[in-house]
Computed example of a mutant assay.
Amino acid sequence: MTEATTGTPGTPRTTETIETDAGTARITWHEARGARLVLAVGHGAGGGVDARDLAALAAVLPAHGVTVALVEQPWRVAGKKVAPAPRTLDAGWRGVWPALAAPGLPVVSGGRSAGARVACRTAGELGAHAVLALSFPLHPPGRPEKSRAGELLGTGVPTLVVQGGNDPFGKPEEFPDGPYELVGVPWGDHGFAVPKRAPVDQDRALAVVTDAVAAWTGSLG
């Protein structure tokens, strides 16, 4: 089911529900005129598509020729408070993929935190054009020995990581060398929030995110 909603001025927005093996998912489309890419982004395990970075990308990228599809996993649509196991998250993402690919454009698979892990794990099988990993949870806080670097290193496609400089799930300097690009957000935490004492404000921190993603998507062939 698809319904029209009100979006950013000049940016048509529609909401679509999709049945998947994990339940009913929801896609909110922020459409670009003359789009050349679709950027599909999923949320994390502790929040939804109203996260500040996802909302900022949806507001900014359509002007750069990128349609942004914000994907809500079935557990979130159902109003549950706790995310399911990774395999269930992957099933939900697989289920929405045909709708994401329906416009006939290359699809960049992305997400924040747990959503970034989903994008990395499924990129190869789904034929993603590239992967965007926002606040990739390299390890649980305080447990660097529990590394999830293998997921990030195994995407097989161009990959951009945008990581807060103070992210307890992995600071930029903790990431291993690999076939991906990494942009740090100075003083940003896991949600790219910056402390009041930081020399940059919240708007500037978000601009680092949106500028990096706009430049990177513009470079994709």
Rank of each mutant, 00 (worst) to 15 (best):
A114P: 02
V131M: 09
E173P: 04
P137V: 11
G154Q: 08
P106R: 06
H139K: 03
E173V: 13
G164Q: 03
S109R: 04
P176G: 10
R121M: 05
P172A: 10
G170T: 06
G111I: 00
S109M: 14
E125T: 14
P137A: 12
L105N: 07
H129M: 05
P140A: 12
N166S: 15
A114M: 15
G170R: 02
V131T: 14
G165F: 05
T122P: 03
G156T: 13
L153N: 06
G142D: 10
A133N: 06
F136L: 10
E125G: 12
G110H: 00
V157W: 08
A133D: 02
G110L: 00
P176L: 09
L126P: 07
E125S: 14
L153W: 08
G115A: 11
A128D: 00
A130E: 11
L132Y: 01
V108C: 06
G142C: 06
L153R: 05
E145L: 07
R121Q: 08
R121I: 04
C120Q: 06
T155L: 11
A130L: 13
G156Y: 13
A114H: 03
T159Q: 09
P141L: 08
V108T: 06
T155G: 05
P140K: 04
R112E: 14
P176M: 10
P176H: 10
F175N: 03
G156R: 11
E145W: 13
A133E: 01
G154T: 08
V107K: 02
A149D: 11
V108R: 02
S109D: 14
G142V: 05
T159D: 08
V162L: 04
F169Q: 00
R112A: 14
E145D: 15
F175S: 03
P176I: 07
A149R: 00
A130I: 13
L138E: 01
S113F: 05
Q163M: 08
L153A: 10
K171C: 04
P144V: 13
V162T: 03
L132S: 02
G165H: 07
L126H: 10
L152D: 02
L105I: 10
R121S: 12
V118K: 04
F169A: 01
G111W: 00
L126S: 09
A128M: 03
A130K: 12
